[in-house]
């Protein structure tokens, strides 16, 4: 009796805890994958308006970042290189995630730009994309469907591969 009850309680528990190792507590799958990307209309640092709906036909890389985030700094050169390589074949946009405009501008002056940087007042776009932190990158295909979400800094090969996949 005790053996049966004890076994019924303890074995599933052990299996369950072992399963816990498989998952990374920090990665959260986006429910937007496979769905049309939330549309937006934002201004970039120069004041030009960017409408997502007008960008159909090429993949779009949407990178939420901030200067206070270490992985974003690590990722910056990766984005510069990839954006160069994909120039004319994909759109690259940065979206400021809870940061001051002046800091962003100084950062870009020092380390170079890789695409228009969009200002997201009130974080409405970050909320519509369900951003859990910075950096997060959304990759949209030519028809405006969200294909990938990457949380954390991307390796150069990773971004290349994902872009190749959607184009």
């Amino acid at each position: 009796m005790a053996l049966v009850v004890g076994g019924l309680i303890s074995l599933p528990l052990i299996v369950l805890l072992a399963l816990g190792f498989r998952s990374d507590p920090r990665s959260i799958e986006s429910p937007l994958l496979g769905l049309p990307a939330p549309s937006f209309e934002l201004e970039d640092l120069e004041g030009r308006t960017v409408r997502l709906d007008e960008l159909r036909g090429r993949p779009v890389v949407l990178n939420f970042w901030a200067t206070w985030c270490q992985p974003c700094i690590v990722e910056h050169p990766v984005l510069i290189r990839t954006a160069e390589r994909w120039a004319g074949r994909a759109h690259f946009f940065g979206v400021i995630y809870h940061d001051e405009r002046s800091k962003i501008e100084r950062f870009l002056r020092e380390r170079g730009e890789w695409g228009p940087t969009l200002v997201d007042p009130g974080s409405d776009v970050a909320i519509r994309y369900g951003v859990y932190g910075a950096p997060e990158t959304f990759i949209l295909d030519g028809s405006g469907i969200v294909r990938h979400k990457v949380a954390g800094a991307m390796r150069p090969s990773e971004l290349e591969r994902l872009l190749a996949e959607v184009s």
Binding site: L3, G6, S10, I14
Partner: peptide
């Protein structure tokens, strides 16, 4: 740690039984 926990759990259940 999980192995140790499992070991203790199994030991305890057997002992109780």
């Amino acid at each position: 740690f999980l192995s140790f926990l499992a070991l203790c759990l199994v030991g305890v259940v057997l002992l109780l039984a």
